[in-house]
Write a protein that binds this DNA or RNA. Sequence first.
DNA 1: GCCGAAATTCAAAGCGCTTTGACTGGCGGC
DNA 2: GCCGCCAGTCAAAGCGCTTTGAATTTCGGC
Lengths: 352, 352
Amino acid sequence: MALPGRPHWSMDVNLKQLSRMLELSQTTVSRALNGYPEVAEETRRRVVDAARRHGYRPNPSARRLATGKAGMIGYVMPTGASVDIDPHFVEFLSGLGDYARTHELDLTLSPSTIEDEEMTYRRIVANKQVDAVYVSSPRPRDARIALLNDLGIPFIVHGRSEGLDFDYPFLDIDNEAAFHEAARLLIQLGHRRIALINGNADQTFAIHRERGLRRALAAGGVELPPHRVRAMPMTEENGYRAASDFLAARERPTAIVCSSLLMTLGVTRALRDAGLSVPGDVSLIAHDDVFPFLKPENFPVPLATTRSSIRAAGQRIAERLAARIAGVEDGARGEVWAVDLVVRASVAQVKG
Amino acid sequence: MALPGRPHWSMDVNLKQLSRMLELSQTTVSRALNGYPEVAEETRRRVVDAARRHGYRPNPSARRLATGKAGMIGYVMPTGASVDIDPHFVEFLSGLGDYARTHELDLTLSPSTIEDEEMTYRRIVANKQVDAVYVSSPRPRDARIALLNDLGIPFIVHGRSEGLDFDYPFLDIDNEAAFHEAARLLIQLGHRRIALINGNADQTFAIHRERGLRRALAAGGVELPPHRVRAMPMTEENGYRAASDFLAARERPTAIVCSSLLMTLGVTRALRDAGLSVPGDVSLIAHDDVFPFLKPENFPVPLATTRSSIRAAGQRIAERLAARIAGVEDGARGEVWAVDLVVRASVAQVKG
DNA sequence: GCCGAAATTCAAAGCGCTTTGACTGGCGGC
DNA sequence: GCCGCCAGTCAAAGCGCTTTGAATTTCGGC
């Protein structure tokens, strides 16, 4: 591949050179390009034009060194031999990227073990590697949030924490209402033995979902005994295990609410193994984060879901992060998205 | 949260300050820390010790500006409303992160549309934002590889391209051999009508898999007519469609080889819909990238697979990338990993 | 026709690090 | 006793940008 005449953005000119060509000082050129007011309009035009023609692009390292701004969003990514990144992360990333792409923002992933997490946050902040960070999968009293709050770097939490004695900016979906609705529907259909298969118990979203479910059940005068609740990482295998346990009980549930599509895969397998049908024997509702590669309508029996696009959340978070970096957004604004309840064939009136 | 006595790595000391404390020049301190030989051992000890005590951490921006080294691995992430990031990416990322974490390497994701891809690569290289990049999902004659080769930045391709007139470093699994083996097994078991459900036809891995399959079939004197091959994005839905088509044909296949577990989910659904059993009516072999959240042994009938951990590949690529950055590895070394064929209950002797 | 303010522009000082080139002192060799 | 050399050390120059503080020009007003 021959070099096709040095494409003009190939960064072969720096500020000094550019200013020399224009017979202006670096100061003026810099200001012209960064939109400062004290530059004559005529001059600015000349500068901007020349910059484009020569494909001038400020060196980010230099700029960062001088200003402290990085043009980067940071994410501390949990890793470790036994740590699995949530597959939801990919979809979230798609959304984040979608927005970031159009705003010259890159994303820095800093892998870290859980133990080193705090140190990693401190490092990326102290180093000014990133202008803002986002936090995912928050737990109650999440130490990361308190830390970032102290550190004073712009951040947004995807999800919510609880038990913190200060407010912070977040974007969350209304998990409680979602599962409340789901449970209410089941109760209306006459279900009394309802089971919950949830994500990890230390995650706020799981807590909220259980809370919503319980609230609806309580309102309907229905019990939720401990043996009808499971909370674990959201894999197919765990879904299978949990459901198998439920189904083996003397009084098996007539409905199962599940926190993830992947787990529900395991649930349907368990049902099949047990020779039970959906929704004849057991009704099913799951939460759907809207993956392109696995759709609830394509389950053996189309699956009723509480639905919220995790990708859209990624976009929105990028947008808000950008706004915070620019200083346009501040304060501890929390944003809670409503969740759709999508009824499909997997729920039915309870039998008998 | 009260500040717990300013943890010592909070980057409140820079090189100048540190050298002043030690009553040494910045030069010497810098050299001592970076392991240059012309520093007295005694001095080095003092310096290293003081650096640790004061939690000195070089400012990456400054270092980058001075050296051009970034301490970052880059990835140009395809995004767009209709672009879905491959869920495999998460697992790969876990592996990459696993290694990167222990080597002070961060990862920069630069979201980009397909059209802007080349420009994005050029930008991150020109800006010295990253020391090395990796390329995933290569296609034949992949323009990105040619570009990076020209640009002269260290890179590694995860997978392979074909039809390029130069060599380049890559890490790939032996997709051809894997599917060759799979097909050979099926032929040994008497299968003659074998179908293939593949990933996107423009991906090299898909091409290699089909090639391996064809080779084995040819050797066994078996045909692979076009109507028994499908190539499409690897979603559950597409797996279902492809399998449904196959099963609706006059002469339905007695065995299906599938490029992904996610697709195979759809395949088993189609089989169920058609009232067919595995392996009684149809044998199944799929490729398994080893996801924690979906395991072949947990399929309704345990699924035979060609297996290779995509996570391990991520680790290895990070390792090699680091080696290239350090100048320890160079040249166009290609690495091809063997793939295990794991036989499980989903394959059987053909009926009749 | 002169003055001070407003409008532009500039030179130079950083940002925190690496690296070049020069400068010490101590030591063996003749 | 002098020279050359080597091990250590240092001051200073850059990396490419922003920003401060000062200099220059312009211009309305009297």
